[in-house]
Design a protein around this nucleic acid. Structure first.
Lengths: 211, 211
DNA sequence: GTCTATACACTGATAGAC
DNA sequence: GTCTATCAGTGTATAGAC
């Protein structure tokens, strides 16, 4: 079908190559850490010679930075669930579902983010101080409003958010431990549903919304 | 007071040197990851020449292994809270307190463990499969018994445990993010108490134990 | 635009003087 | 037991042929 399709422009070729490299990089950074990852490993996984990586991304750190930004953007999108809701059961419930789904589909990205933060955020500290800080403040006041309106129990909005992040991301970051404790098998669809339901149940009841 | 004290035996000298090296290694591994850590960095932080590290620990990996085992042992000790209790409010409440206190005092160890698991547990996989798996099974049946006796709401024991691990360890592993969101300051004593209380409150209510 | 070959720096580990 | 000097191996990055 080569002739029916318009030949790819240079920009499209570049975009496609970058995607392949980014996906390979995400996996390698997640499994080996920044220091343990080598450009050679990433190149092999992407099926490209090592020098090509340096053509598309000037340095290893620039490549890494793009990988980290990607998962952060995905999480920010999921935050939409929060804003569109007019009550905690709906808003927090949907947020849990969205974040659990991300943990399932983007575990490598989540791990890279976790490692970055554990190492004191050498490349995304500015995001923490600006975008994340603003997002957190906004969501904390939404929760506080729900509390003031008597829609949920008076819990610390800040620590509730930390609990939501910790619990949902645990299923990505510690997926290897979870699989080991599941007899070495990845969670099945049913088990993922079970996990989501359990998290929703405990958290929602924990903030005074008995199911 | 040199003369009043018995001169240190060789074994004691060795033990003391090992401790200095292990503490330096824990910090460097936590901040840089296994791949990012160098024996030179650890030696500098311990105040010893690089070759001395290789005298006390044959390889970088052997040193790393000891660091990982240490935090695991500390967590197992904290599990005592669980067994000695005769109800969930007491048992799980004490477990939360114990694990939060460990997150406060051993954040570097917790980070090293998290990174090790994220990288698919290359050096402690056997622990996951034996000690951790057995511990988990035991605690799950304790929780199930409490449920059967009507002492708490019927929640998934497995996912409750995951939530406890995730939430408490988050305060160690993501301490940098938490500090950034706290205006760049470490949590004060009062803020730690607040965090502990919030976690206890939400979790205990979440399993049907309204405060 | 793409890849081969290579420069240059740094790492873990060790030999050997003290 | 301890440390200085050094080696072999590997990493990132780039120069230059195609």
């Amino acid at each position: 079908m080569e002739d029916s399709a318009r030949p790819l422009t240079k920009k499209e070729i570049r975009r496609a190559r970058e995607r392949v490299i980014l996906e390979a990089a995400e996996k390698v950074f997640a499994e080996a850490g920044f220091g343990g990852a080598t450009m050679q490993l990433i190149a092999d996984m992407a099926g490209l010679p090592k020098a090509s990586l340096h053509y598309y991304f000037p340095t290893k750190e620039a490549l890494y930075r793009r990988v980290v930004q990607r998962i952060f953007d995905i999480w920010l999108e999921a935050a939409g669930s929060f804003d569109e809701a007019d009550g905690p059961a709906e808003g927090i419930g949907a947020y849990i579902d969205a974040k659990m789904e991300i943990s399932r589909r983007h575990r490598d990205g989540s791990k890279v983010w976790a490692a970055e933060v554990m190492h004191r955020a050498p490349v995304i500290q500015d995001y923490l101080e600006t975008t994340l800080a603003e997002w957190t403040e906004g969501r904390m006041s939404v929760i506080q409003r729900w509390i003031d309106e008597g829609k949920m129990a008076p819990v610390s909005p800040r620590h509730l958010l930390y609990m939501l992040w910790a619990t949902t991301q645990h299923y990505a970051d510690f997926s290897h431990q979870i699989e080991t404790l599941n007899g070495g098998e990845p969670l099945s669809d049913a088990q993922w549903d079970e996990a989501k339901a359990a998290v929703r149940q405990i958290v929602l009841r924990g903030i005074g919304l008995a199911p």
